[in-house]
């Protein structure tokens, strides 16, 4: 491999992890916008999605069916968590709610340990096929799947929140609760749906990347942290910001690992985060919000 193809190789690995960070960040943003809550259990949905799919495919379910079922199961788990664990303490302080989502995260991790055990599982790639050579670098077909799924998810999100009445109603809830209530929109239903969306998308991220990783019950921790970073850098409430920041983070991280040090990559990435937040506390895409009356 020459120097250029090495750089291309790093870029591919940046796109791969960037897709994962972007998807997790988007899932966090959707929950945050509608229920003003950061769900720290998002990493667990990443794991639940992937491991459910491992189980379903090993039971002989065809890939597309296993894929759809895993997304739906994860989304249902997220929606149930909202309904029975978050909604009863809706009016509690932000602190209590955050502690609650952390507790949910640990509980779900324990549940995953109980169901799937300690050992790592690997999901077969979505399609057979040899790695593709691009500028001397190799590209796994699964990476194309990951990027394709990310693009598709973003398209579906856009269509839902722009074109469907329910999606528009959820945005209305996110922007102005009072106004939304007066239209007869149930803010509870919106929060419920936002959790279903969030956990479904988090699961998709895990499922897409599972064939490239060893997935076990605790694999969601780092992706969650990185997704959260992408969310913050993207401005907390911006889907576009989350996507751009997710990919930026993935690519910066890949080049840091490749060119500087794999040992210190997290340190370097987190230092960059600190610098961004010091100079731009509202994130790269955070609008300075002014409330008009």
């Amino acid at each position: 491999m020459n120097e250029f193809s090495t750089l291309v190789q790093f870029f591919f690995s940046g796109l791969t992890s960037g897709s994962v960070y972007a998807l997790i960040a988007v899932s966090l943003v959707i929950v945050y916008k509608v229920s003003l809550l950061i769900c720290f259990a998002q990493g667990e949905f990443f794991v639940i999605g992937a491991l459910t799919m491992v189980t379903l495919t090993s039971k002989g379910l065809p890939m597309p069916l296993a894929f759809a079922c895993s997304v739906l199961i994860s989304a249902a788990v997220g929606a149930l968590v909202e309904r029975f664990l978050i909604r009863p303490i809706r009016d509690a302080s932000v602190g209590s709610l955050i502690v609650m989502t952390i507790a949910i995260s640990l509980a779900l991790r324990g549940l995953a340990l109980l169901i799937w055990g300690k050992e790592s599982k690997i999901l077969p790639p979505f399609s057979a096929g040899k790695p593709i050579g691009v500028f001397g670098a190799t590209l796994q077909p699964q990476v194309l799947w990951i990027i394709g799924i990310t693009i598709l998810v973003l398209l579906v999100i856009w269509l839902f929140f722009e074109k469907t009445t329910m999606g528009v109603a959820m945005r209305a809830c996110a922007e102005n609760r009072l106004g939304a209530s007066l239209m007869g929109i149930s803010t509870e239903k919106a929060a419920f749906l936002s959790w279903a969306w969030g956990s479904g998308i988090g699961a998709l991220a895990g499922m897409a990347v599972a064939p490239l990783l060893f997935m076990q019950y605790s694999s969601g921790v780092m992706p969650m942290v990185k997704g959260f970073i992408a969310m913050s850098v993207g401005g907390l409430a911006s889907i576009v910001g989350a996507v751009v920041a997710g990919y930026l983070l993935g690519v910066v991280e890949a080049y840091t690992i490749g060119l500087i040090s794999s040992q210190f990559s997290d340190t370097i990435v987190f230092t960059l985060l600190i610098i961004v937040l010091i100079f731009k506390p509202s994130g790269l895409f955070g609008a300075t919000r002014s409330r008009e009356v």
Binding site: T165, A169, R171, E175, L178, G184, I185
Partner: peptide, 24 residues
């Protein structure tokens, strides 16, 4: 109820605001 301070949805289009008026 047309509330004090209008409470319209600034980030939505006029059409989407009206659509939600018929939401119920």
């Amino acid at each position: 109820h047309v509330p004090e301070g209008r409470q319209i949805f600034f980030t939505l289009t006029v059409q989407q605001n009206l659509l939600l008026g018929a939401y119920a």
